[in-house]
Design a protein around this nucleic acid. Structure first.
Lengths: 174, 174
DNA sequence: AGCATAAATAATAA
DNA sequence: TTATTATTTATGCT
């Protein structure tokens, strides 16, 4: 990590202070790094990714970049706080549209479905997109959820022997 | 969700206020719900799970439970902030031991390793614990990482057709 | 009353 | 920056 060092007359302590402050204020507004990045991309210059915000907060950037980004963030955050004062609805609008995106309901599978998925993936570990669509429809689950890799992993999991799975951590080096 | 309602002379507005405040102060200290839960379990009464902290912050509990939990959290948080004043080292000690658990470095595979993993999982989608150990040793990667389901998923992924994979979101119901 | 784990967020290799 | 790993939060279940 390029620690922010004292070059080119940049007030590093000030930047450090702001970065820390920025994170807390962002969280106080209930905003994610992603939201900030997207909002900035919309209102300010070219493009600010979630990663960019993350790196600024951790000051995992060059002093020059930090110096350049600071005023942009400062201005934007103040404005965001201003809108938040007038009600969270206003903030969300300022941030970028979708007012109240709710967390997706977590899916749970019936034992039957799990069994079917298990046996399916056992036969075919590499289903194509179409095959996934097929099985999702058959089982009547949301395609993304039912047959995402994440869930294939879960379906497959019982095949592992728990004890063995945990007993060898770190035994193999890296 | 049992919204906090106005029963039994409990000051709901105050609790709501505190819950919101608690979250912000927790984040300012850089603590996770898990850390708070564990610390409370250690210093205070019986057991406070991460879920419990989460549910308090979202007030996804009965007013009675909230009322009971509030003073405990209030006291603990104040103390935590006190220690934090004296330096973050003190806070981490107060919270519970492990001073600076670093985030695990994310692993990356050489193209060779990916190819080998791909062909391996294509032949055998359900390796046993022992087989996993074996291949991890062979490739000289950390067992947990190298052959976790997460990574098997990655090894397998190229088989999906991107276009199809995305085009059918929500087409299948839930 | 909390465990298991799905969903969402943050951090990082490339 | 993008793609994706690692960690944290939230919730279905019992």
């Amino acid at each position: 990590q390029p620690a922010v060092s004292s070059e080119e007359g940049i007030n590093l302590e000030e930047i450090r202070e702001f970065a820390k402050n920025f994170k807390i204020r962002r969280l106080s507004l209930g905003l994610t790094q992603t939201q900030v990045g997207q909002a900035l991309t919309a209102t300010e210059g070219p493009a600010y990714s979630q990663s960019a915000i993350c790196r600024f907060e951790k000051l995992d950037i060059t002093p020059k970049s930090a110096q350049k980004l600071k005023p942009v963030l400062e201005k934007w955050l103040a404005e965001a706080e201003h809108w938040n004062q007038k009600g969270q609805q206003n903030l969300m609008e300022f941030v970028g549209g979708e007012p109240s995106k709710k967390r997706k309901r977590r899916t749970s599978f019936t034992p039957q479905a799990i069994e079917i998925l298990n046996s399916y993936f056992e036969k075919n570990a590499l289903p194509t997109g179409q095959e996934i669509t097929e099985i999702a429809r058959e089982l009547n689950y949301d395609r993304e959820v039912c047959c995402s890799e994440q869930h294939r992993h879960d379906a497959v999991k019982p095949a592992f022997e728990e004890a063995d799975f945990h007993s060898l951590n770190g035994a193999v080096c890296g």
